[in-house]
Design a protein around this nucleic acid. Structure first.
Lengths: 148, 148
DNA sequence: GACACTATATGTATAAGACATATATCTGAC
DNA sequence: GTCAGATATATGTCTTATACATATAGTGTC
């Protein structure tokens, strides 16, 4: 009936949660695209500079999102180019120069849109997580009927 | 005190949920990396072929994940190369050739890991969503105190 | 001076995803 | 008979986020 196939036994990589071969590349690629909304949320509370945002984003996401500093600054500049945030250098302070970021009105609108989207994602994630758990717990494996 | 800055007023793009300029590129990039776990969950229930998976994944995620067929087949082949699924051509059937995919034991282990990860993400998403909603509803904008 | 911490930034490689397109088979409409 | 549309698998290619490495500069401590 069926002809066994195997495309090839490539290098066993495992994204997320484990490493069969010790590689330990733990990525779901950005842990689910939470960086931007987390950044906007952090900035909605209070203006801040980039370095601080690394920590506040980590707190806001319970440690799920630990932003790469390089990527964070790039994101901030992109958001500024889009009019979502504005920045200003803090002068007359000791220490390395700091740039302080603030949300614009447009940024608050964007965050409001994100809230709607996050709630949709949360529902989807709920459904999927429950289904995935049920699939791992109940070993039920009903056979498929015919075509269609 | 502060020197106003604007990096540049580039092209207003908006990922996710809206389009200020009509571009309507609605992406959080893969809606949160749910494709692989959704695929594994769908396959845990019953073996299936790629074309069916498009629809079952869409159902499993409440419409949040609508897989691109090209990407789905590429993902299936990658998973097969990794030993997560196996496939076989269905012979002696009418219609275009179909390849049927099955989860391996390794695939079930991977799904179990995904469940743990999804639950972590769900917690993080809960916290972030609540914080984001609070930030948009309550317009509180306390000023930051001094450095550190 | 060496080192660690704060702070911002660039360079670069990888890989997921979006979109377009190619292919083949089958069914039903005309 | 052929034309359109659904089923089914697959490749090509471009964009973009992210990860990781590295560069820079100031400040304080030993």
């Amino acid at each position: 009936m069926t002809e066994q196939m195997t495309h090839g036994s490539g290098p066993r990589r495992r994204r997320c949660c484990q490493a069969a071969d010790g590689t330990q590349r733990q990525l779901g690629r950005g842990r689910g695209a939470l960086l931007e909304p987390a950044l906007l949320t952090a900035l909605a509370g209070a203006e801040a500079h980039g370095y601080d945002l690394v920590r506040s984003i980590e707190e806001l996401t319970g440690g799920e999102v630990v932003p790469d500093t390089g990527g964070l600054y790039r994101l901030l500049r992109r958001l500024e180019a889009e009019g979502v945030v504005t920045s200003s250098w803090q002068e007359g302070e000791s220490g390395p120069q700091r740039r302080e970021y603030r949300l614009t009105a447009e940024g608050r609108t964007l965050l409001a849109h994100w809230v709607v989207h996050l709630e949709e994602r949360r529902r989807a994630l709920d459904v999927l997580t429950e289904a995935a758990r049920a699939a791992t717990e109940g070993p039920a494996r009903p056979a498929r009927e015919g075509r269609s």
